[in-house]
Nucleic acid binder design. Structure first.
Lengths: 186, 186
DNA sequence: GCACCCATGTCAGTTTCTGTCATCACCTAG
DNA sequence: CTAGGTGATGACAGAAACTGACATGGGTGC
């Protein structure tokens, strides 16, 4: 056994989500979060670079859901087909996570500071997808645009998905959004 | 003559851009900015909500460039045609501002904190465009997607525009990006 | 000329975030 | 079995970002 309870990082994340939900982001201090997690404030900042970051897990792991799907797509798939496969994969990944996603989305949506961070994460996801497309031989400009389309479609779909009380098929919604985009550009 | 030199807000913005450029965003304190502008730190925070905001002018004024163009589009224009008109209008607005835009883009691009703020501004611009489209009778979901396409195209075009040493036609680049998006979704 | 207005100054205080050093259980070498 | 290393944590001081409260003093309207 260690000198301290293990899993400090996870306890901090859970305590933060609870407190942001209960009192709001601004009314919660890092000291509050640390106290509920049973550690000191200094330890919080050893695990998370800043107060906002505590709501965002490992980005590499999350981005891989999309980029792995891109990499695994058949060679003859068009950029947009590849995007669709990535959206399906993301939909799979979120199966069963609807309750948590709703809770988290409500907290993030309530505070500009957290929305900002979410948007950078989305940007980085887009860059990762673009890189994966380039690795497949897609020219850089087309890859960048396809990646943006993918994140836009996913974000729209995600918004609609969390808006419903019951968990539905996120991947299907995302494909639907992609079709709407296709219709718009006709 | 007033008791104080007028234009404190503008002096603060200029001082901040200079200092961020010279020393970097993190190495510049708000006290530094205020000192160069000839005011106190407290006055800085009376004009700008936080240290980042000083690089972002009045969003309503900027967004109006796009939304006015949307509102002024002929009734028979499709959502995407309307988007194209907004992109042209934005291109016009930036005529002659290439040197300043380059300088500012370099500073913003160098610091995640500033990129975050820029992304929220882009999000709000998208929401404003969507609202303007809804006012024209476009259904909300299509309006949201069209607005996203517009901001994505503009951002891509803007990135390419500032990357060149010489000022070129931003509106034309943006229309070109829109065409690329059309080609991708075919 | 007098009262009000309002941008600014002054100052104290909270919160976020960082640097530095001490602590102490566990592990490994000998 | 003991000594030293390792690594996460605590303790503490401090810089910088922000906020609230009150004071100041020139400009403006009556």
């Amino acid at each position: 056994m260690g000198r301290w309870e293990p899993g400090a990082r996870e306890r901090l994340a859970e305590a933060a989500l609870e407190l942001f939900d209960e009192r709001g982001y601004e009314a919660t201090t890092v000291a509050d979060i640390a106290a509920r997690a049973g550690v000191t404030e200094r330890t919080f900042f050893r695990h998370y670079a800043d107060k906002r970051e505590v709501l965002f897990g490992d980005p590499a792991e999350y981005n891989a859901v999309f980029t792995d799907a891109v990499a695994a797509a058949p060679a003859e798939a068009s950029p947009l087909d590849t995007a669709a496969l990535a959206l399906r994969a993301a939909g799979e990944w979120f199966v069963g996570r609807h309750p948590y996603a709703r809770r988290r989305a409500a907290v993030v949506g309530a505070h500009t500071a957290l929305q900002e961070r979410e948007l950078v994460k989305q940007l980085h996801l887009g860059e990762a997808i673009a890189a994966a497309l380039v690795a497949r031989g897609v020219p850089a400009p087309a890859a960048a645009l396809t990646a943006e389309l993918t994140t836009v479609a996913f974000h729209q779909a995600f918004t609609r998905w969390v808006a419903r009380d019951e968990e539905t098929d996120l991947g299907a919604i995302a494909i639907g959004v992609l079709d709407e985009l296709r219709a718009l550009t006709r």
